[in-house]
Design a protein around this nucleic acid. Structure first.
Lengths: 345, 345
DNA sequence: CTGAAAGCGCTTACAG
DNA sequence: CTGAAAGCGCTTACAG
């Protein structure tokens, strides 16, 4: 059963393809009578415009691309939800690719999306990405591009982020306020901006509270992805290296949970011996024990905001109007739970 | 900067568009010299074929659609990963939609994907789906369709599943083997096949062990989605209704975790007072305490298998060869953890 | 080995 | 109010 075309409708009604096309799109220069006839037949024949042809004519695909480091992470799946739901509202479909934190893959996927001629691209960078020419090329070709969460400051485009530095500061301050005297930090990989900013927030909080900053207390994620195993490994290492640490600010909940699991195994009590603050507020952080104090990061909202901005830019582009890049900073909140102690009065 | 077309290459080289097209596709009837010239220029100009035009000609989009009930669920995000990675290998892109367990949405999304003329569709049904005409229509239009996990037996198409009945039987048998005498079941919604099959597996295990089947011990999920809250609510209800239940087989890990949280709050000890087996082996089940005994369901593998089958069918269709529907059953395994007791010798 | 021509199914500027 | 025509950028059967 072949799909119905405009031509078939036109032939059956003995009118031109032009008129059929215009009737279906409610052009004002078609008689109401013709419109009614056309629409009725289109409906009975279950006519669906051929998107391929429409795309070719309009040079639009009503499809956007999304590149995300890891889909299964709670934060990112929430971002995806936000993007898809907003896109659907505006009649856009979303092609999703996973970069697996690899720069090479990310680059290939950008190429793929450009070949596919998506109308715009949303991206959260891989940890491995240090070169941004693939992104600048997208921009150079006038393809709207919006980065979120894991961004590169140097790339000129819109960005949806949180204030990582401030959030990390809050988190560290909370450890200090609850009596921690020697606070370690499990940071992410070296490159990502958010990992840098969270580190800087941690450092600033220490200094503002007249606590010494000790580089040996900062553990870098070498493997590139922020995993449960990474948390266990770092926790083990920390216990070997130091016996006076009483608080840790950890870059991601999943890593924090890995660390807590290890501490639990080793008989180190959380928060009595060591307090822990995570980052991102994954669902599971609220159900493990002790429940994890963390920074809530609005994934769903971030996804929505990212699509909205992309949509704005796609619309401007279509009208040949100038695009104004925006940097939208979403609010975060510290969620206090059992992995940190009560406030010291 | 407008994209380069075949015409531009042809003009610059003073040859025909036909020859350029054939040269780029390595047709045997183009001289090696011409080929070399064309390819070189194409490369320097960064020529990318216009997918819209290619699609229109070839009637293929090299894109498939995926409809999934909930993205953030660990099992489903793993399925997505499996699908995307396999699709990428074969040069296919994946458009993802979330049905939110709603039949109405699912139907709309099928329509959307058909309008978009994707080459094939992968779907896991919404809990609310009891009418399958939207799916039969897809099949009637010769569009390859593969269902996975949440399937409808009555729809004639390929299916990738696990043996839910067997897995549930295993899970229940484990509760029996570890000494449970009165076993409840939190089943999913009424409609989904897997929720029915898991219930039947539970029931069969009881009967095979000469244990009475008591309908009042089966709690149905009314709200439609299998959530954490659902687990808490059912657990509460169970404590009200019965004081002799010592084991529960729960349809989904997330619900099981909700139940455990509630039990913990009420001072009911797991597994001492009540043993629990979940289903799906979500990551978080291995990090909560007690860790959750559950049935491991191979999400990533299921995604891969689903795409592979779809790919086979798309290839057959292209060659105008008959499509053979397959029902592929993947293996599951019981993962024994702390929420159930040791085997009774 | 090369190329003119038709056509995929639409949209839209233009003529009447 | 209606329609002929051009064109979006490809692919491919066919002629030479």
């Amino acid at each position: 059963m072949k799909p119905v075309t405009l031509k078939q409708i036109a032939e059956q009604l003995n009118i031109s393809v032009t008129t059929v096309s215009k009737a279906l799109k409610d052009y004002s220069d078609v008689s109401p009578k013709t419109k009614a006839l056309v629409k009725e037949l289109a409906k009975t024949l279950n006519y669906k415009p051929n998107t391929f042809a429409v795309n070719l004519r309009t040079k639009e695909s009503k499809t956007i691309g999304l590149i995300i480091p890891v889909i299964v992470h709670h934060f990112f799946s929430n971002v995806i939800r936000g993007i898809i739901s907003q896109a659907e509202k505006k009649g856009y479909l979303v092609i999703i690719l996973q970069s697996n934190e690899s720069y090479e893959l990310e680059k290939k996927q950008i190429d793929l999306l450009m070949s596919q001629r998506v109308d715009g691209i949303l991206i959260s960078l891989a940890n491995g990405t240090a070169n941004f020419s693939h992104l600048n090329e997208v921009i150079a070709q006038d393809k709207p591009l919006v980065m979120f969460d894991k961004i590169a400051k140097i790339v000129k485009c819109s960005k949806i982020i949180i204030d990582d530095r401030k959030a990390a500061y809050m988190a560290t301050q909370h450890l200090i306020d609850t009596g921690c005297k020697r606070i370690a930090h499990f940071r992410g990989a070296l490159l990502p901006q958010n990992s840098i900013d969270r580190f800087l927030g941690y450092k600033k909080a220490l200094l503002d509270n007249n606590m010494p900053y000790d580089p040996s207390l900062v553990y870098i994620c070498e493997c590139g992805d922020m995993s449960f195993e990474e948390g266990k490994k770092n926790a083990q290492q920390l216990l070997n290296d130091h016996n006076d640490v009483d608080g840790i600010f950890i870059n991601t909940d999943l890593v924090a949970i890995g660390a807590m699991t290890e501490f639990n195994k080793q008989g180190v009590k959380v928060p009595e011996d060591i307090s822990i603050v995570g980052f991102s507020n994954w669902f599971m952080s609220s159900v493990i024990s002790p429940t994890l104090t963390t920074v809530d990061q609005p994934g769903y909202e971030m996804g929505r905001a990212a699509f909205k901005q992309l949509y704005r830019e796609m619309k401007q582009l279509k009208k040949n109007k100038p695009v104004v890049y925006k940097e939208i900073v979403l609010e975060t909140a510290l969620v206090k739970r059992e992995s940190t102690k009560e406030l010291v009065k």
